[in-house]
């Protein structure tokens, strides 16, 4: 019945130099080839949770993880909080890609941006690189806009194009999971629409976790929704249930905008 790609179990997270945990006892399943949305008021810990799922918190010293975050990847079940070696973290990040709120093109050409992760992963064969770059750009629906300017700087693209380039860059690594942290909050409605379409398309190949403040976006796009509040996971269920018939009063208040 349920087909997990990731899950957090009794997960706690405490930032360096802070006494109280910012995430408390989080139990969240991430279903394979589904889109899971995380919603909740500002500061409730959505980004913190997302950033634990690829261990990007480790770039800053002193943060504390407790509990389990399991990844059911090619190697079978693995608690990613047990990973210690740099190589293991690198392999985790190749399996669990991340897209940020603002587009983050690297200061290099469009081609090099998309090829970057593959080159890091050791792909050297030029024709393989070319093929995978093209496929990734097609998957991210910007092949037509980029095919004639592959060698120009990615910094010259529009914000929406840059965001799709970042998605292409992540997709090129063939990850198992992609984490999106408010990927459209810096974009205009048309680019937002394009990105949403793209994410819906992506779930054929990857499992998606998306943080959003946009209720319509969560309900349109996701299969499952988690509602968080003050570091707690208040409710997790099918998106329809969360939006039509939530269990918790708090969830209902948040969704209907009667909050505070």
């Amino acid at each position: 019945m349920s087909n997990l790609i990731m899950e957090t179990k009794d997960f706690n997270f405490t930032y360096a130099g802070v006494d109280d945990p910012s995430l408390k006892n989080i139990n969240l399943p991430i279903e394979k080839n589904k889109i899971t949305a995380m919603i909740g008021p500002s500061g409730c810990g959505k980004s913190t949770l997302l950033r634990a799922m690829n261990r990007i918190h480790d770039l800053y010293p002193g943060n504390k993880y407790e509990g389990e975050i399991n990844l059911y990847g090619a190697k079978g079940k693995e608690n990613i909080l047990d990973l210690k070696k740099e190589n293991d973290l690198i392999s985790l990040r190749q399996q669990v890609g991340m897209i940020f709120q603002k587009p983050t093109p690297f200061p290099m050409s469009i081609y090099d941006n998309v090829a970057y992760g593959m080159k890091l992963a050791g792909v050297k064969n030029k024709s393989e690189l070319d093929g995978r770059v093209e496929k990734a750009l097609k998957d991210a629906a910007i092949w037509n806009e980029t095919k004639d300017r592959m060698n120009t700087s990615a910094l010259g693209m529009s914000g929406g194009q840059q965001q799709r380039l970042c998605i292409a860059r992540a997709v090129a690594l063939k990850p198992e999971v992609m984490l999106f942290d408010e990927p459209t909050s810096a974009l205009d409605p048309i680019s937002t629409g394009a990105i949403e379409e793209l994410i819906a398309e992506l779930k054929k190949d990857v499992s998606v976790v998306i943080v959003t403040h946009n209720m319509q976006q969560a309900s349109r796009l996701s299969d499952y929704t988690a509602f968080m509040y003050l570091g707690d996971m208040v409710e997790y269920d099918k998106t329809d249930t969360i939006f039509m018939n939530p269990n918790e009063k708090l969830t209902e208040d948040y969704i209907t905008g009667r909050f505070g």
Partner: peptide
């Protein structure tokens, strides 16, 4: 150099 730019390189598996 913005932190998120560095983070996105790490997120691609960079050392």
């Amino acid at each position: 150099v913005p932190d998120v730019l560095k983070e996105s390189a790490y997120a691609m598996g960079a050392t």
